[in-house]
Design a protein around this nucleic acid. Structure first.
Lengths: 242, 242
DNA sequence: TCAAAAGTGTTTTGTGTACACCCATGC
DNA sequence: GCATGGGTGTACACAAAACACTTTTGA
């Protein structure tokens, strides 16, 4: 190995000279969206900090020294929901100086979409609850801003990518799918235009089965084509051209 | 003030119990795009780490304990370019465990666009150089990935927002503007369609002046309408509807 | 008079959106 | 037979893309 040129620092000397800076904690916060009773929900936990007594916060944890950011958010998600094979997307880093009363903590926000029917497990104790997104007014820390940012990102992506199917049972009708989109986007959609747009995307397989136990004419059931299932895979950003 | 309930932690006790985690450094890295000689360029600095001897890296610095993320990136930008009143957008956090040889450093990446004619100042010494983006193959750390991610983001946003005008002189012709878009997007554009699309956006003022000193028919000169000038203002994310 | 770019419009194709009727089922 | 939603098609407006010729200027 070559000796270092005089003006070059080694990584070790660099670390020592900057030790003062190694005093910021890094956390991840997961905005875990679910869907139930035609409402978009988010999983929150009652804050255990006195400063935020009685308030709810997102699910997060400090990032461990030997763990990358995606792994940390994945760990949080799995620990809280017991669910594996989930899709997570990094959205934004929040780093306000006074955002955490314990000291300087910057957080990296992720969102995820899970079927809240499939995980009742860890939820009973723990002050964990599903909250209706549109009714949330205030959260601990800056978590309302984090939530809003993640919801905006979800709304941006949801028509272009087959994301939302992890919020539905495997078999679903087009009505159920449309209601889910309406809950996420917060708008009403025209049924014919919705069906046309979905059919163009070619995401679904017609199962040749019908709904049962509905108090009206049963609709066809569909499922997502297997090649679109998202299991923690990265989401390609859309590339626009002029 | 109410006494804490037994199960609630105070921020102070929380901090003590987690002291082990306060050992990750946080940096910002700025992808500073410029434009010259019909090429999109990026400002890089020769790495001063022995591990990356001879390689170039993005401009970054550790975030100070009393400084938020946006301020840190703004400080880096100003220190290196001497320029004020700049637009910066946060893009992504990179947190691979071994991405920095000095220890655990996560970085928040920003991009910015500046007119490289207006700041020759800090550039002469310092191993700072402008590099043609499309020719860059390899950078120190994971900075090639950071650069690619920021370029993708820029390409996503550039048609929908009046961003690129800080890369041009105040007065410019439509040809110059089109060449800039072509450099950013890496594609050739149809002149008539480009002019139509730009005119629909209503971003420009026709100055009633013409180019001079061009070896061909002079084009009209335009400038950006003042209300679209970006001076570090936040960029609204587009909201898509169904 | 030549080279280089300015300036300009039409057609086609695809997409978004608004809108109305009959059908199948459960009750 | 009534309520509820299923299922379908058309018309209009707008946006994107392809494409060619004349004009102006400098050299």
């Amino acid at each position: 190995m070559l000796p270092a040129k005089p003006h070059l620092k080694t990584a070790e000397s660099e670390k020592i000279s900057h030790l003062d800076y190694f005093n910021i904690a890094v956390s991840v916060d997961c905005v875990i969206f679910g869907y139930d009773e035609q409402e978009l929900k988010v999983l929150l936990i009652k804050s255990d900090l006195k400063e935020f007594e009685g308030m709810y916060s997102l699910l997060g944890d400090l990032v461990k020294p030997d763990e990358d950011l995606d792994s940390a958010s994945y760990r949080v998600l799995k620990a809280r929901t017991g669910m594996d094979d989930l899709y997570l997307e990094q959205v934004h880093a929040f780093g306000g100086v006074d955002r955490h009363p314990s000291g300087r903590v910057i957080t990296i926000a992720y969102y995820s979409l899970i079927d809240l029917k499939h995980h009742r497990l860890q939820l009973s104790h723990n002050d964990l609850h599903w909250h209706i997104v549109k009714d949330i007014r205030k959260l601990a820390f800056d978590h309302k801003l984090v939530l809003d940012t993640c919801l905006n990102r979800l709304q941006d992506q949801v028509m272009d990518h087959p994301l939302v199917f992890s919020l539905l049972p495997e078999k679903f009708s087009l009505r159920e799918l449309q209601q889910l989109y309406e809950a996420i986007l917060g708008v009403e959609l025209d049924r014919r235009n919705f069906r046309k747009k979905i059919s163009i995307k070619d995401w679904l397989i017609d199962l040749g089965e019908m709904e049962t136990d509905v108090p009206h004419r049963p609709g066809k059931l569909y499922k997502l084509k297997p090649e679109f299932r998202l299991n923690g895979n990265p989401l390609p950003r859309s590339v626009k051209s002029l």
